[in-house]
Amino acid sequence: MSEHTLTGKNVLIAGGAKNLGGLIARQAAEAGANVGIHYNSASSRPEAEETLAAVESAGTRGVILQGDLTVPANVTRLFADAESALGTLDVAVNTAGKVLRKPIAETTEDEYDAMFDINAKAAYFFIQEAGKHLADGGKIITIVTSLLAAFTDGYSTYAGGKAPVEHFTRAAAKEFAGRGISVTAVGPGPMDTPFFYGQETPERVAFHASQAMGDQLTQIEDVAPIVRFLATDGWWITGQTIFANGGYTTR
């Protein structure tokens, strides 16, 4: 049976500097975990430092780690560096992703490659390294998207790039089950973050909000506690995609 707390656990969060990842990092520290905070580009460094300060203010240890996770060698280094700084890892959360809203007829090969590199390839090798490094009884959680249950236009490479993660999650859940490692995916609805607004018109934003309870977009505060639950009491849930979207869509 798994631990019901994060006290003394070591948690690695890809994309942990800001938005949802930043909140997950803060909540993990408040729950007693030491936290590895990954960020991708130099522009996110100040936010990573702010998140680190919040983690340390909670009384736990933290470390900042940078890397382009579309390169598998960098994913390997990320886990090695996190383990070196914190000790054996117990929880690995991947919030990294890239969004694009564009018609299929207008999508370039470079855009296709970039979308699948970050949303699928990086996620695959993150799960692979987590399986190698996590302690028995560990937890692997990947943030996907509720578009996996939607029938809509424009998001072919975003939803398409995230879709393979469901299959990665199921396979890993079976392959790592002997060590008590749970593997899950969480699909938030359209989130009230800069990640979303750059792709949508005000009219479409209003429509997306109208599809969920309370006529509102998903908040990062709605999703982070679900990740914490999966990392603790919810460990028996494995191989699943959980749609956390206030009724936006399901299947």
Rank of each mutant, 00 (worst) to 15 (best):
G36W: 00
E47H: 09
T193I: 09
V227L: 07
A122V: 04
V99I: 14
P202R: 13
Y39R: 08
V183R: 02
I37N: 10
P188G: 13
V205R: 12
T238Y: 07
A122M: 02
G154V: 11
A244R: 06
T5M: 00
G59L: 00
I220Y: 10
A244D: 09
I140P: 01
V63S: 08
F79D: 02
K98M: 12
R251K: 13
G247P: 14
I127V: 12
G21R: 00
A173F: 06
I118T: 15
I141A: 03
F207W: 15
A14E: 01
L86D: 07
I181C: 04
A80L: 02
V99L: 00
A173N: 03
L23D: 06
L6A: 10
G32N: 01
N94F: 05
Y197E: 05
Q240C: 11
Q216S: 15
N74L: 02
K18A: 12
T108H: 10
E109W: 15
S146P: 07
D110H: 14
A150M: 00
F207A: 07
G62K: 07
G15A: 09
N74G: 02
A73F: 01
A54H: 08
A82C: 11
A130K: 05
D136Q: 10
G36K: 05
Q216E: 13
I24N: 05
A58S: 13
